[in-house]
Design a protein around this nucleic acid. Sequence first.
RNA 1: GUGGGUGUAGCUCAGUUGGCAGAGCACCAGGUUGUGGCCCUGGGUGUCGUGGGUUCAAGCCCCAUCACUCACCCCA
Length: 418
Amino acid sequence: MIQLIRGFKDILPGEVELWQHIERTAVDLFTTFGYGEIRVPIMEKTELFARSIGEDTDIVEKEMYTFTDRGGDQLTLRPEATASIVRAYIQHKKYADDPVHKLFTIGPMFRRERPQKGRYRQFYQLDVEAFGIAAPYIDAQMIHMLHLLFERLGVSQTEAHINSLGCPECRPHFREALLQFLAGVEGRLCSDCLRRKDRNPLRVLDCKVPDCRDAVADAPAIIDYLCTDCQDHFKTVTQSLTRLKVPFFLDKRLVRGLDYYTRTTFEIQTTLLGAQSAVAGGGRYDGLVEALGGPPTPAIGFAVGFDRLVEVLAQSLTITAPSPVLYIAALGEEAKNVAFDCAIHLGQAGLRVEMEYGDKSLKAQMKRANRLGAAHVLILGESELATGNAVLRNMATKAQSDFPLDGLANALETMLRG
RNA sequence: GUGGGUGUAGCUCAGUUGGCAGAGCACCAGGUUGUGGCCCUGGGUGUCGUGGGUUCAAGCCCCAUCACUCACCCCA
């Protein structure tokens, strides 16, 4: 038997309803707030991701599905959506008619990591981006929108963590201070952090090894090194969130792994997913559009881990597909003809109808109707054909009534609608 | 990439010192020539993950491999 690829998964009927529910809720919310859907390819030139996410990140270094196609191009299955959306924004010169564009997309991403709870090699994200707005209000609005999303979905055990990473003006000062501090505690850092220290010192703050946490407990916080502009920006964000009554936690250790982030960064965490605590994350990336060849354009965005959200919700919410309103039990070829035409008619009329196509006993058909949760069963057999009346049984009350075969479909339609 | 745990029926899982492959649920058929749920009877639906090895004999022991899973790492 051929099995599906490691870290990939099928979403089967029975679970897909929850996915649809989440998607509907999210699309409705994003649309209300003025975000339009954009659909971008799941493959791009490798260079796009290398340049946007950062050459030195784990994603680019070892987690991408990259290959050479038959024409010799280096292609990559997208590990995240932001790069593609920025690319599309620039390529179609969307900034020309109006620099402000608010977009969202939903779809699969690919990262070749070791699978575990809440982490797959093909995973899904809800991705939201806003271009052309430098004002901190959009930062607060996005975090508020995330808060609303979880609230509407009934997810309670979440916490918003926010921080500011500064900008090209102030980050170098902080970096220097941090490097000095790290040099002093070098002996207490884990091997990973020693390596990280030179490449991306901010990440050391994010280490989960207890000894490292202790070692950097008194490390300088970037929040204390922000320039005046960044300070003001962050202040407006936090004040707005307070006014909007969005609970948040100022997390000085929140450092995000992608190079392009600036200023506000945020993450929604939950305790329900084991080690994979983040269900959503994002931040501002004011330099990326320009870095990828567009005009200087402020931007901010976030991604929600769709699979993770499904797992969280599945613990408390069950959504099932609607049951058929009618099951037609037919006995014999002639009866099946009548049943088939009737089923098609009702289907066109928008009613969910099931019928038996094979040769099953009435008992077996009743059993299946019961299992499917059909509200009514129409019995069509030899005696019904002979008398010219089909029998309609209400499965809950067991009451049965006759329906003339003449004009059967229309009569059923009227009855089932009532 | 590293480490731990687990792979037996559709599902959840038993399987003793190595000795005929099992249970519950589900499913199918019948009890009722044409009436569901409850009940009764019958039916095992299987490449014991896969490939080797040891043995008279392997679900069980050994080696390899694949998958699942949890954690590290990283992230959504």
